[in-house]
Amino acid sequence: MSWAIIQQSLPLFAKGFVLTLKLATLGIIGAIIVGLICSLIYYFKLPILTPIVTIYTEVARNTPLLIQLFFLYYAFPILGWRLTASQCGIIGLIFLGGSYMAAGFTGGFDGITKSQIEAGQAIGFTRWQLARYVILPQGLALSVPALAANVIFLIKETSIFTVIAIPELTNTALDLIGMYYHTNEYLFVLVIAYAIILIPLSLILTYLERRVRYGTFGH
């Protein structure tokens, strides 16, 4: 291990770090929006849309991100849709993440006690009033830990972007290893970089889980 080599590589890693965060943020925001819409469609069992959402979530959850990316990046141009690598990465992350977020939201909505929903119906709420005043405020709070776990999962998944040559953290490390062979140093920086992003998030997740548990069970 040589500190000089690590120091020299830091500017490149910093770039990769920023790109990882940027792509992950865009992907996660998109995934939360897609997930929320899908979970509401699923919750209210809207006709026509519900089977579409079910098929989407099953396909997205049961196939690897790597193949989804290859499909977007290599196979879609044949259909005439050409996307840049970063666009593929973000779309792939939204496609995969949306299904996970949908499951997280659905879990939260299912955790609302039945009496709450019946009380809402009893005072004459329409479906959307019920969603706005009863289901969302309580369900969102309950789904927070699952969503936070998905955020961590999706950030880790950005490491797969290396296969379509997006210069994020993992790709930066592999490129440097390929050029200079300082394997130990570059892998060390890579692990530290992920730890800097993920350890705080994982602590927040533990805290959130405790809060929700306290809110639900009182201990």
């Binding site: 880790k156 998944e157 490491s159 992920y194």
Partner: peptide, 9 residues
């Protein structure tokens, strides 16, 4: 915490 890609490498 370490992504599986990184673990493999």
């Amino acid at each position: 915490i370490v992504p599986t890609v990184v673990l493999l490498f």
